[in-house]
Each structure stands twice: as C-alpha cells, then as structure tokens.
Design a protein around this nucleic acid. Structure first.
Length: 508
DNA sequence: GCACTAACATAATCATATC
DNA sequence: GATATGATTATGTTAGTGC
C-alpha cells in the first residue's frame, strides 16, 4: 500500500458541497442572462472565435446567447465549467498504454516527449497517467481480494509499493509578485476557477494553465476559508510576496524554460512503443499525423476534442484505421475532417516552423483515411494493458477516434530522436500497403511538407484577413497565450464556419 | 441506463528557493 | 534549519462519451 495513500470517508468532502453551493450563492459574478462569469464569457467567446469551442456543446449555447446579446434568462452554471473532455484516439491510447507500461511514473521529460509525439498536452498526459495508475491499483486490489496471496502490481514493473520513483520533476515555476497578485485577486473572487477563468489567468499572467490549476489547488489547501474582509484586505493579509518573486517573469519566454535537468537521462517513451506500431489495432478514424517540426506546432487547445461529424452516421465507420506510424496515405474525407467548432488542428505558428530535416521524426503532414489491414503480428502485450481488462487498446464498435492528431515538433529543436540504427520505431515504420484511401481533390491533398491544410486554407486572402488575427500567437496549453483577442460576432463566426466548410467540402 | 474514463477535487508529501 | 510554496502522489467524485 502506498505510503502516501489515505482513505477518506465517502462524502466527507466538504469542499464538494462548497463547490456546489458557490454557484448559486451569488459569489460568482454572472453576466445578465448568461451563466458565465466575466472570465468565462470572455474566454468562451474567444474560444468560439478561435474555433476552440464545439458549438454543439451545451455550454456553447450560453456563449452564443451572450454573443447575440439575447438577454435570455439563464441560470447560473451549476459549477465552474470543466475543460472539454479530451477524446483520445485508439492510437493515442495505445501509445499511452505502452508508455505507461514502460514507466508508470514518468518524469516531466518523458511526459513532454510523449505529449509532443501524440499532440496531447503534457498536463493531459499527466492526468491520464494518474488516472491510469488509479485504475491499475484499483484492479490490482480487486485481484488481490480474489487471490489473497496475490503477486506484485499488475504493471509488471515491480514498482515497490509506497516507493515512488522520482524521475525528474517539472522545474519549479517561479511566480512573481505581480503574477501572485493577479492570482490572489482571482482566488478571492473564485476559489474554484473553471477552465475559462484559468485560461484567462494564464493569459494575464503568462503562467501555463496547468500551473495555475496547481496553484489554486495548493492555495485552497493552504488557505482554507474565505477572507471576511474582501479581496483587497485579504490580499494584504495573505499575500506575503515571495522573497524571490520581485522580478516578473519574462512572459514571452516563460514556457521555454528548460524542461528538465540536463543531467537527467532522457527516458525515451518511444522506444517502448516500437512494437506498438505493428500492433496498432485497426480502428475507425482519420488521423492527421502532422509531424511537423515546428516550434509552434502542437498548438494544443485544451478541450478541443476534435470530433467531427461522422460521415454516414455511426455505422459509417468504414474504417479508417490508421496507426501512429503512418506517414503516408494522403487524403481527407469529410468524415475525417473538421467539424464546425473543431477548427484547431495544431496550426503551425507562422514563421516558426523549422526545416523538416531538422527533425527526422517529423515527417510531412499527412492525412490518412481508409481501412488498413490489421497488423499481421501484433505484439503480445498489445491490448492487455487495460487495467480493467477492457478495451483500452481496442476500439469499441463504432468507435471512431476521428481525431486530428498533431505531432508537435520540438520547441527547441532538441527533441530526442531514436539513435540511428535503432530498430524502427512506430513513427519510422514504412507505410503500410496503400489501402483504399479516398482520393481528394488536389486542393485537399494535404501531404505537403510542413504545411497543414489549415495553413493552406489560411493562405487564402480572405482567410488571411479574417482568421489570421485569431490564431497568430501561441495558444498551447503550456504556452502563455497572448492577450484576449477581440471576439467574433456570432454572424462572423458562422460566416467563418461556412467559409471553412466550403473550403474543405465544396461539394457539400 | 450503464460502463468507462477524462477532469477535477482533497490531503499528504516531496522538492526547491529563499532567508 | 526554517519557511514558503510549487510539484506530485493516492484517492475519491463528477460528468462527458459511447454502447
């Protein structure tokens, strides 16, 4: 039993009830008719404008209401909005499973490495790994309860219970006094900030959203209860400026701090995945595997689950199996493309892309669609990593991962690469025999080197004018975003959507 | 409706910067 | 060494997704 584990009685969490209460006790500043506080409204609108919001989502109605200034009465949100749930593709899950099997306690370097490769933000990797450990521990306890003389942990790595390997933590984030002041003000206003508020604070402070989340967690833990005397007094009472925090961070470089200690032997999670490529089960999906070596690539937008409308409905998963190793098979179909409101595709930031040759693993951006025969010889351990013996690695019926994956390039050009002569990793494996890929009109064939198809779209004059201002500047989760841009009006947004759709699917 | 699981919460603890 | 605080852990809950 892990030494740090503790058991809490179910329902003993006062904070949850507090959390639930706070939404209706007037503590939140609600815009008239819209259950969003100013942070959330502003962020939400910006998200809509940037295509980061799925307008099919219930919460989007609030935003649209606000954008339209309808004034329709709406109740407060029951609680702070969460980050949009990430929908992992089967291949991403497979890679994560392999990664986890290799090391259930990955350090920051390994997490960031995998984050780049899978185009998932590092914080999501961290959450996934945490959840995965929970699942495995839970299952191992179930097994132990059946088999009293149980054996070791199911991960097969023999992690001694209670001894957590420290593989290299994230470099401690230095938060300046001014940043702390902003956070404290926000904390006084809202102890449980939703994703919108956190991202807004990230913009204001230049601190990555995930760090802000941790800051709030620590703050709540160490400063329970509210100051009775209001934010200003509370600020004075609570805020003891950090002795080191006198120099504000250079926000433009904050996220570029070295990711790990240089003397840490980099764990290469990819090596653990070498066998995964062949074993990637066929799934129904279309992936963009944009291995663009681009500092600004992997522009991960939190919450962008990138679930497009399914062409032909649920049964229409005419299987677009793919694997992470695929770098070929051009094409794009509607079913595998964007859905309105899912426009984030990991746009390379203009002018920041590196030469592809600098990053051998970053092959050209490719889209693949169409079925592919399942691997002839899947690795033995494939698919058994599911902690509950479920289908972690195998797609469920009709499970269209439908994701648009971007492989982010190394931000600093130092991304670890497999040594020459290593056995081919999944990203190096030759493309499978050409499957029945769906041909696309030339303008939609996106297998150009460092270009994404959005880049192509955005090269159009009108797109340049209308869209470019919305996405210039990094917006990755771990990257402090710039100031909140002016939102689009609803009409403008819909016009933009139509433009995108027309560009992608003119025949529709 | 249910199972699964990402997101998020806490408490506890570790790690690190500063004095 | 003391202190403050960021990072990580186990554990439990909430809520979105898919069957």
């Amino acid at each position: 039993m892990p030494s740090r584990g503790r058991s809490r009685a179910r329902g003993s969490r006062w904070s949850r009830s507090e959390h639930n209460r706070r939404s209706s006790d007037g503590a939140r500043i609600l815009l008239p008719g819209v259950g969003l506080n100013p942070y959330e409204a502003a962020e939400g609108i910006a998200s809509v404008a940037q295509g980061r919001v799925d307008l099919r989502a219930p919460e989007s109605e609030l935003l649209l209401q606000h954008m339209a200034s309808s004034g329709t009465p709406g109740g407060p949100l029951p609680r702070a909005p969460r980050r949009r749930r990430l929908v992992l593709t089967a291949s991403q899950k497979g890679a994560l499973q392999a990664f986890f099997q290799e090391n259930p306690y990955p350090g920051i370097t390994a997490r960031e490495h995998l984050a780049r490769e899978l185009a998932i933000s590092e914080s999501r990797i961290q959450v996934w790994v945490q959840n995965q450990r929970t699942r495995q521990l839970r299952q191992s306890r179930r097994l132990d309860s059946r088999i009293p003389q149980g054996e070791g942990p199911p991960n097969g790595k023999g992690q001694p219970p209670g001894r957590v390997p420290k593989e290299g933590r994230r470099k401690r984030t230095s938060i300046s006094a001014s940043q702390t002041s902003i956070l404290l003000q926000a904390f006084e206003e809202e102890r449980f900030p939703g994703i919108g508020m956190r991202e807004s604070l990230a913009r204001k402070t230049g601190i990555p959203e995930a760090r802000i989340q941790v800051w709030f967690q620590n703050r709540r833990a160490r400063h329970p209860g509210q100051s009775p005397s209001g934010p200003e007094n509370a600020l004075a009472a609570n805020h003891k400026p950090s002795p080191r925090g006198t120099v504000p961070l250079d926000q433009s470089h904050l996220w570029r701090v070295p990711r790990s200690s240089p003397n840490l032997a980099p764990f290469d999670p990819l090596a653990s995945m070498q066998t995964q490529a062949a074993g990637t089960p066929p799934v129904s999906s279309v992936d963009v595997v944009p291995p663009v070596s681009c500092g600004g690539f992997g522009r991960l937008i939190p919450g962008a689950s990138l679930v497009p409308p399914t062409l032909g409905g649920q049964g229409g998963n005419a299987a677009a199996p793919r694997d992470l190793g695929s770098r070929s098979c051009p094409g794009l179909t509607r079913g595998g493309g964007l859905s309105p409101g899912h426009a984030d595709l990991g746009l390379p930031s203009p002018g920041r892309c590196q030469q592809p040759k600098e990053h051998p693993s970053k092959a050209p951006l490719l889209l693949q669609v169409g079925p592919r025969p399942p691997p002839a010889d899947p690795p033995q351990h494939w698919g058994h990593a599911g902690p509950s013996g479920t289908d972690q690695a195998m797609p469920r019926r009709g499970q269209s991962s439908q994701a648009v994956m971007g492989t982010a390039g190394s931000q600093d050009g130092t991304g670890q690469q497999p040594a020459p002569g290593e056995s081919p990793a999944w990203w190096q494996q030759p493309p499978p025999p050409a499957g029945p890929c769906v041909p696309l009109p030339p303008q939609h064939q996106l297998c150009t080197d460092t270009s994404s198809f959005l880049q192509e779209l955005l090269s159009a004059d009108e797109m340049e004018e209308d869209v470019h201002p919305l996405w210039v500047g990094p917006l990755r989760e771990e990257e402090p975003p710039g100031p909140l841009e002016a939102p689009l009006s609803e009409d403008d947004y819909h016009a933009l959507l139509e433009m995108l759709q027309d560009s992608l699917w003119p025949q529709a």
